[in-house]
Amino acid sequence: MKPRVTELGMLSIGLVAAGVIYLAAYLPKHAPLAPAVVLLALAAAALAGNFLSLTRQPGFAWWRFRQVAGWMVLVYLVVAGMLEFTFVYDHTRGSVLAVMTLLLGVFTLNVPLLSGWTVARFEN
């Protein structure tokens, strides 16, 4: 069965975006965290499901995936670092910062996964 990596990745990034918008929409007050945590858990589950579906893909060009995703991780660590700097600079603290950071982590893993998959699937 053809893995739906792009679709699941879009879902995961969409859930991350929903979580960040939800938290940002309450600023400077603290939003109730439960909805954001649910969105984070769903986004992480979609990301994990995506990785799992790739491991079950026969003949997948893992070497190319690692090459592309590795560099993309580096790029998006810089982007994530900048976003994290903005959160801290804007005095986001405590549990809100923790949830924001985890959402950022899921986002940072999703982007390399999607680029690595798109390149590697055309390798063979």
Binding site: A17, L114, S115
Partner: peptide, 18 residues
């Protein structure tokens, strides 16, 4: 912006690199 980011990161950028 979130919708644009999803389209850009999941479709546009991977297509560019591929």
């Amino acid at each position: 912006v979130a919708i644009m980011a999803i389209v850009a990161l999941a479709l546009l950028q991977p297509a560019n690199i591929a």
